[in-house]
């Protein structure tokens, strides 16, 4: 191609314009809103204030006193907890799966890649609500267990942390598998043969050779699961019984029913901050290559 400066910039301009106006500007707007005053049931108004951020830590009781209120912080903590558990579970299931895929012959590997990716492209709402069918009191699991005579009373599998965890694991498993798989595929497998030649058992080889070499992929996978799962909305909303268990649905509530846009914006800023920090950690550790 004739590399002339101007055509390239002209070609990029629609993209930059659209993203600038309809993506970057709204995000900046949210940051701005976080410093404004609540206008129930929707919108914001002047004056500028730090009230929204203060709400993260404090509540104002009827006498106008500030009382330390950990409810929002608890939600943040819960989100981090659930995201963390989800990440660990994804890793425990995802690493063996990626390892298995990487040891398949070439034509099978492509098939596995496709099979693992397909669920990602199907509707998350439908996939999440399908777990309601499976986990509820008269759902498939309980019916099967009762029919098999293993339990008498149905188990409370839905509308709790367990269900949300399952939902998160279900949504994000492919995000763990694919970066690890990409890493393993590029690994030089002769190193494993060399380790074996030098008297290492399978577990020693795994610990001393495979795992260290796969670390970038593992880190990328962990970040790719942890960060988005913190901001998850559908899993806590549908599977958690709408009890505002995580930041995602708390924000939705603040912009909807509760009508507190500034607080919702502040919460969004907090969430974005967590995401940015996570990304910075990852780009330091060099796991960013696995993302793209």
């Amino acid at each position: 191609m004739r590399d002339v400066k101007n055509p390239a910039l002209w070609l990029l301009s629609p993209f930059l314009a659209v993203m600038g106006v309809f993506f970057a500007a709204p995000l900046l707007l949210v940051v701005g809103y976080s410093f404004m005053t609540q206008h129930y049931p929707g919108g914001v108004e002047f004056p500028l204030t730090l009230d929204a951020y203060i709400k993260i830590f404090y509540d104002t009781d009827f006498d106008g006193n500030r009382v330390f209120d950990a409810s929002f912080l608890m939600i943040c903590w819960k989100s981090l907890q659930l995201a963390g558990i989800c990440t660990i579970l994804c890793l425990l299931a995802g690493f063996p799966m990626a390892y298995f895929m990487a040891t398949r012959p070439a034509h099978q590997r492509n098939l596995w890649m496709m099979l693992v990716t397909i669920p990602f492209w199907t509707n998350l709402l439908i996939r999440t609500y399908s777990w309601m069918l499976i986990l509820r009191t008269d759902g498939l699991v309980n019916n099967a267990l009762i029919d098999a005579g293993l339990i008498k009373e149905p188990l409370e599998l839905l509308y709790n942390d367990f269900a949300v965890g399952v939902g998160l694991l279900y949504s994000y498993l492919p995000f763990m598998v694919l970066p690890i798989y990409a890493n393993l595929e590029r690994m030089d497998w002769r190193l494993i043969e060399a380790a074996s030649d030098l008297y290492a058992t399978r577990w020693q080889t795994l610990r001393k050779v495979t795992l260290p070499l796969t670390m970038p992929g593992i880190i990328a996978g962990c970040i790719l699961v942890f960060i988005p799962s913190i901001g998850s909305f559908l899993a806590p909303q549908l599977l958690g019984g709408g009890q505002q268990m995580m930041i995602g649905n708390k924000i939705e509530n603040l912009f909807g029913q509760a009508g507190d846009w500034p607080f919702g914006s502040a919460a969004s800023v907090a969430l974005m901050a967590i995401v940015m920090i996570g990304l910075m950690i990852m780009s330091r550790r060099g796991g960013l290559k696995e993302l793209v």
Partner: peptide, 10 residues
């Protein structure tokens, strides 16, 4: 990278 809920409200 940005959580979808944030993009939504923004």
């Amino acid at each position: 990278l940005i959580p979808e809920i944030v993009i939504a409200i923004a």
